[in-house]
Amino acid sequence: MAEIMYWEALRRAHDEEMTRDPLVICMGEDIGVAGGTYKATNGLFDKYGPERVIDTPISEGGYTGLGIGASFVGVRPIIEIMSVNFAWLAMDQVFNTAAKVRYMSGGQLEAPVVVRSPGGTAHQLGAQHSARMEKVFMGVAGLRVVTPSNPRQAYGLLKSAVRCNDPVFINEHELMYNMKGDVPDEEYFMPLEGSEVAREGIDVTLFGYNISVHWCLAAAEILASKHGINAEVIDLYSLSPLDREGIKASVSKTHRAVIVEEAEPAVGVGSEVMAIINEECFFELDAPPVRVSAKNVPIPYNHTLEKMAIPTTQDVVDAVLKQFGLS
């Protein structure tokens, strides 16, 4: 077990899979000679050459479609879209083709392609570089969506996603590439479905994913030390499909749920988890579930307003206290 950064974990997964299978390639803007905006492919251009580590033109729809087409004939492309905001330009290819080709061909073709892209609000990047789009991807049948919250997951999910025969969208985060965490020394594969218990507790379940897992963990510490509330934190690293059983099991134990998301509330992870709780374990609830979400606004440039637009650890603490009638 070694402590490495999130980007190093991604780089290691790329490197191992490319060594194993000559048909694993990676492509995206500035990923080759420049080493990658987030260094996830750093050094791979020199190791594997331009045919397999492909610097693409700034044509998101084009190169994503190209990767999908290559996957029809056995290639395993890992496509990096530099910012999830740019992924809108590739939606036709991802949604209309990658997610549907197995189905509409009656199982004859498949698109085993991985699309990685960071979303989230970072540091004053403005409205067009701060989108959180996981809700868009998770609403489409035929596509898997995972979102690693730490280096171990980043490594293990990419390893499994490359080998899986389904198209997988990996939702990363602008702010998390330098996060440190333990990653096993031996090869490690994360399941592409399920959830993880990030912190065990008995009084309330905090559901988070990607960066919001860390807000939940920080909130749980405050709740425990200052308010005597022992919160469980569930890491929903798989957003499509969501882990119905895991959600049910935790809520059945704690009888309370708070869902924390960096995205706007409408049609999102929070609303979907609430629907699952209703469907699976409504009568286990001691209180109505609560969402802690971003404000329903495009992200502003001004730093103070930007911070106001997205949830904080304190927002999570406040939501829990309110649910307990303590505020």
């Binding site: 084009g62 029809f72 036709d92 290819q93």
Partner: peptide, 24 residues
Amino acid sequence: MGGYALVGGPFPLAAGIAKGIKLK
């Protein structure tokens, strides 16, 4: 490799198949 219903959708897919041919 199929008929596709989005006008122009196959342009990059075909380039991708060609990329696969070249790699192999």
